[in-house]
Write a protein that binds this DNA or RNA. Structure first.
Length: 599
DNA sequence: GCGGATCAC
DNA sequence: TATGGTGATCCGC
């Protein structure tokens, strides 16, 4: 691999590559298709299945000196025969097919196509190169085994013992546990087979959030616009800070890390580079409790990337790694020489991504997370697989209530509602539907969800999730909302609560669900008191209605806008409110135009 | 536009 | 005995 490569010699570089990449190089035997059936003897993907079962954190730090082969055998034996295992095996077969398809595609590329690709790649390469920025200092900061590290502060005796945080599936583990081959995302029972003395602590998010805030407070002194990706990870642009300081950037970050440890007791690792992609990769080099700097120099950056295994790239997971490795792209440096064929077999966005990685390009503008608008909000839950209608509905209700809580917290509603299921076989699928009015309450979620659930019954599932997209910001104070608020300053919230309560009842009635107080406690112990009481109220109303001669189908609520009493049937309520709002809107618009005429 | 897949953490 | 939850994006249909 020519590390001296630059845009001025791209033509000669590319012709070299073209000379070496013959179409035949990718020829695989299409006469002998990959074995895809379990009963066809030892599968060609058997070794890969071990690899797949090892999970995503194989390339993480703290795994050197671990006998991966032995671990792999234990995991395989622990998993064998389970539904999870069968699903993994099936996915591995499908992936093997996909990889073979990619190889066939690569083999089918003609010389002419390759030559044409070469021209195109040259243009794309030059375009990408023209975006290079080398005058910014970007830092990626990553706390080491964060949750475990925070727990060690409370339980110092755990420091010398292997332990993990999580439950069912591990979220993270300390470095003592990693010596045994324990990893994040590993099933707890598997981890205990590898390391029987492993202690597993439950998650304690409030504690992690507090510690994270302490750390971020320090970080903000270096860049007030930092982007905190998660509790334990942040990007910073310290260009300005460096300019105002007479220390080297490496020294600045070293001091910062020492200070974080002194003041919070948590060790952090850092990567320093010209952009966030390079910084992110660099932060992993000397983990834990270390840092690595890549000079803001084109050649230094490309040298750094060249020897990097593609799996280390953020955005390259198990699947893309398999595809790339099959095409003999093992490290980033291989991307350049193989760029012509990659251009032919990868999607254009994946190709651009790979090109950026090869060149060591990446974002240099770091935006605070609160300036990045979210696109969806969802809740899901896993339970012991069930096919019973009532059990599934109670699970659905639980996630709908959780979602409502999230909507309230974030002050968001959604114009599209979606539901997700995972079958007991671990296959998952989803359904979604646009709605006329932005949704944010559990009754409406539950009503839509019930229809979607019924449509797939009978079915045995282990997970239900609900999600809204096409979000509407309820805090947005447009002229309309301000006007409404001024009109209804007193009674609005009360009316809304009443209305919501009746809609919930409505949803339950239409879904023909009977829920006792005990069941509510059992299924949704953490649901809000408001929802609980709404359901209880519904049951009372239902009892009353069934015992009386039902003079009307629905109770009455007051309109939050005009305060008139209307039937609480949700369709009528919505219809009335829409009409009422549009009436107000017209009036307001008229007033506005009158005012502007006077001016 | 929907649903499935992939990825990060 | 047994394998998570949340959010984003891309791609094929």
């Amino acid at each position: 691999m020519d590390l001296e490569w630059d845009s001025d010699c791209s033509a000669s570089m590319d012709s070299q590559s073209a000379g070496r990449i013959s179409a035949l190089e990718f020829d695989i035997s299409t006469e002998e298709p990959p074995r895809v059936h379990a009963d066809s003897g030892p599968s060609s993907s058997q070794g890969e299945l071990h690899h797949r079962l090892l999970g995503p954190s194989l390339s993480k730090s703290g795994q050197s000196g671990v006998d991966q082969n032995a671990i792999s055998q234990i995991i395989y034996r622990a998993s064998e025969g389970s539904k999870y295992f069968e699903r993994q095996r099936q996915q591995e077969r499908e992936l093997t097919k996909k990889v073979h398809a990619t190889l066939r595609l690569a083999a089918s590329v003609s010389k002419q196509e390759l030559t044409a690709a070469q021209q195109r790649v040259k243009v794309l390469m030059k375009q990408a190169e023209s975006t290079r920025v080398l005058d910014q200092t970007i830092v990626h900061l990553d706390c080491d085994a964060f949750y475990a590290s925070v727990e060690e502060l409370d339980f110092p005796e755990l420091k010398t013992k292997p332990f993990a945080v999580g439950g069912g599936v591990l979220c993270t583990c300390n470095y003592e546990a990693r010596k045994f081959g324990v990893r994040s995302a590993m099933a707890e029972f598997v981890a205990k087979k590898i390391c029987p003395q492993l202690t597993v602590l439950p998650l304690n998010f409030p504690k992690y959030i507090e510690k994270s805030n302490q750390i971020k407070k320090i970080l903000r002194e270096y860049d007030s616009n930092l982007c905190a990706m998660t509790l334990d990870e942040a990007y910073m642009n310290i260009t300005k800070y460096c300019e105002d300081s007479n220390k080297s950037r490496s020294e600045i970050i070293n001091n910062m890390r020492n200070r974080i440890f002194r003041e919070t007791g948590v060790t952090v690792s850092a990567g320093i580079g010209p952009n966030s992609r390079v910084a992110k990769i660099a932060s992993n080099i000397n983990k834990p409790n270390g840092q690595f700097e890549v000079e803001n120099d084109r050649e230094a950056v490309m040298n750094f990337m060249a020897t990097l295994q593609v799996r280390k790239l953020t955005g390259v997971g198990y699947v893309l790694e398999r595809q790339l490795n099959a095409l003999q792209v093992l490290v980033c440096g291989d991307i350049g020489p193989k760029s012509n064929i990659l251009h032919q077999v990868m999607s254009s966005s994946t190709f651009s991504f790979l090109l950026e990685c090869y060149l060591g390009l990446g974002p240099t503008v770091i935006k605070p997370m609160d300036q990045i608008q979210r696109k969806s909000v969802g809740c899901e839950t896993t339970f012991s697989a069930a096919s019973d209608r009532e059990i599934l509905r109670s699970k659905l209700l639980q996630v709908c209530c959780d979602l409502e809580k999230e909507c309230k917290r974030l002050k968001l509603a959604g114009r599209k509602f979606g539901i997700k299921f995972k079958k007991d076989t671990f296959e998952s699928f989803s359904r979604s539907k646009p709605v006329s009015k932005p949704l944010s309450n559990s009754a409406e979620f539950f009503k839509l969800g019930t229809v979607m659930l019924d449509a797939v019954m009978p079915i045995k599932i282990r997970l239900i999730g609900v999600r809204i997209t096409d979000l509407v910001d309820l805090t947005y104070e447009g002229p309309m909302r301000t006007y409404i608020r001024s009109l209804t300053a007193n009674g609005l919230d009360q009316c809304r609560a009443t209305s919501s309560e009746h809609q919930l009842q409505d949803a339950f009635k239409s879904a023909k669900v009977e829920v006792s107080s005990e069941e509510i406690e059992t299924h949704i112990p953490e649901s809000s008191g408001q929802v609980r009481s709404a359901i209880q109220a519904m049951n009372i109303v239902e009892a009353q209605e069934s015992s009386t001669a039902r003079k009307r189908d629905f109770p009455v609520v007051c309109c939050p806008i005009c305060s008139n009493r209307i039937s609480a049937e949700s369709a009528l309520v919505n219809q009335h409110i829409d009409w009422c709002l549009s009436r107000r809107a017209i009036k307001e618009a008229l007033q506005d135009s009158e005012r502007s005429m006077k001016i």
